[in-house]
Amino acid sequence: MRRTTLQRTTVTAAAAATLLLAGCGAEHDGTGPGRDGDGSPSASGPRSAPEPVPGCADHAELTTADSGQTLCLRAGGQVRLTLDGTEDRPWTPVKSTGTALRSTNAGIVILPGDAVAAFDAVTPGTARLTSTRPLCPTGPGRTGCKGTQQWTVTVKVARP
Rank of each mutant, 00 (worst) to 15 (best):
M1W: 07
R2S: 13
R3G: 10
T4L: 15
L6Y: 13
L6S: 14
V11L: 12
A14Q: 08
A16T: 08
T18I: 12
T18A: 09
A22N: 03
G23K: 00
G25A: 09
H28R: 14
G32P: 05
G32N: 04
G34V: 14
R35W: 12
G37S: 07
G37N: 15
D38H: 04
D38Y: 01
D38G: 00
G39A: 07
P41V: 01
S42V: 00
S44P: 01
G45D: 08
G45N: 04
P46D: 09
R47M: 08
R47Y: 10
S48A: 11
A49Y: 15
E51D: 14
V53P: 06
D58F: 12
E61Q: 11
L62A: 12
T63L: 07
A65K: 04
S67P: 15
Q69P: 00
Q69D: 14
A75N: 02
Q78K: 13
L81M: 11
L81Q: 07
T82K: 06
L83E: 10
L83D: 04
G85K: 12
T86H: 01
E87K: 11
D88F: 02
R89S: 12
R89F: 10
V94E: 06
T97D: 02
T97L: 09
T97G: 00
S103H: 13
T104F: 07
T104A: 04
I108V: 14
L111D: 09
L111H: 15
P112A: 10
G113M: 04
V116Y: 04
A117I: 06
F119T: 00
F119R: 08
D120L: 08
D120C: 06
D120M: 14
A121V: 02
V122L: 08
V122W: 02
G125T: 04
T126W: 03
R133Y: 05
P134E: 04
L135K: 13
G139V: 06
G139F: 01
T143Q: 11
G144D: 14
T148M: 13
Q149H: 14
Q149E: 13
Q149R: 11
Q150G: 02
W151E: 11
T152A: 10
V155S: 00
V157D: 00
A158R: 15
R159W: 05
P160D: 14
